[in-house]
Amino acid sequence: MKLFATQSKTDTFADELEDWFVSSSVRLRRGAEGQWRIDVGADWTIRTNQWRLIGAKSIVVTSEDDGHQLGLPAPIDAEAKANETADGLRISAVSLDARTGDLTISFDNGFSLQVHTWSSAFETWQLYRNGEFYGAVGNEGLR
């Protein structure tokens, strides 16, 4: 079932995301022109421009950190740092804010991966299953 539809589907979509994602692993991949892929399990891909990985006490790394040295000995490789941190973790919960379209993927160790909506009109992230477009999420949820 394709979910590209009206905002009224947002609550159902959030429940389905959790069903689809729980127990899966994630892998982040840097794409072209600032685009990122978040592979969830073997079938699902989220495409977004911005994300952040939150640890137990602070932000571990964000897409905005990528390539910046920030006073460190070498520039941050956000892809490598996120994947090293998430290696072996399994998704324990998924939440989608129906007002904003913000997505939070929670892991079994208390860490979380967040994809936020950064525009009032732009669809900030898109979901694909085996390469097939499922839906886009922006302000006010599923579109």
Score class of each variant (00 low, 15 high):
Arg143Cys: 04
Leu113Thr: 02
Asn139Gln: 10
Gln126Ile: 09
Gly141Asp: 01
Ser63Ala: 13
Arg52Asn: 10
Asn49Phe: 01
Gln114Leu: 12
Leu17Lys: 07
Thr104Asn: 13
Ala82Glu: 04
Asp102Cys: 13
Glu79Asp: 07
Gly41His: 00
Ile59Thr: 03
His116Leu: 13
Phe107Trp: 04
Arg143Trp: 01
Trp118Met: 15
Ser119Leu: 07
Ser119Ile: 08
Val137Gly: 03
Leu17Phe: 04
Glu123Leu: 14
Leu3Phe: 04
Val26Thr: 06
Gly41Tyr: 00
Val137Leu: 09
Phe122Gln: 14
Gly55Thr: 01
Thr100Arg: 11
Glu18Pro: 11
Phe122Asp: 13
Thr62Met: 13
Leu89Gln: 09
Ser8Leu: 14
Glu16Tyr: 12
Arg52His: 09
Thr124Glu: 05
Ile91Gly: 07
Val40Trp: 01
Lys9Phe: 01
Arg47Gln: 11
Ser112Thr: 01
Gly131Ser: 06
Leu17Ile: 03
Leu17Asn: 05
Glu123Lys: 14
Ser92Met: 06
Thr85Ser: 15
Met1Leu: 12
Val115Phe: 01
Ser58Leu: 14
Tyr134Gly: 01
Ala32Val: 11
Ala5Ser: 08
Asp65Gln: 06
Asn139Arg: 12
Glu16Cys: 09
Val40Gln: 06
Ser25Lys: 10
Phe21Leu: 14
Arg99Trp: 00
Tyr134His: 08
Gly101Ala: 05
Gly131Asn: 07
Leu127Thr: 02
Glu33Tyr: 08
Phe4Lys: 12
Ile76Cys: 07
Gln126Asp: 12
Gln50Leu: 09
Thr45Met: 13
Gln69Asp: 10
Leu103Met: 06
Leu103Ala: 08
Ala32Trp: 02
Ala14Ser: 13
Leu127Trp: 05
Lys9Glu: 00
Gln114Asp: 10
Leu96Ile: 04
Asp39Phe: 08
Asn109Gln: 09
Trp20Met: 11
His68Trp: 07
Leu3Glu: 00
Gln126Phe: 09
Gly67Cys: 13
Ser106Thr: 04
Gly131Glu: 03
Asn130Ile: 01
Ile46Gln: 06
Pro75Tyr: 05
Arg90Gln: 11
Arg37Ile: 04
Asp87His: 10
Gly34Met: 02
Lys2Tyr: 07
Thr48Val: 05
Thr85Asp: 14
Ser8Asn: 10
Ala14Ile: 07
Ser120Trp: 08
Glu64Gln: 10
Ser112Ile: 01
Phe133Asp: 05
Gly138Cys: 02
Trp20Glu: 04
Thr85Met: 15
Arg90Glu: 09
Gly110Asp: 14
Ser25Arg: 10
Ala98Gln: 06
Trp51Phe: 09
Gly101Met: 02
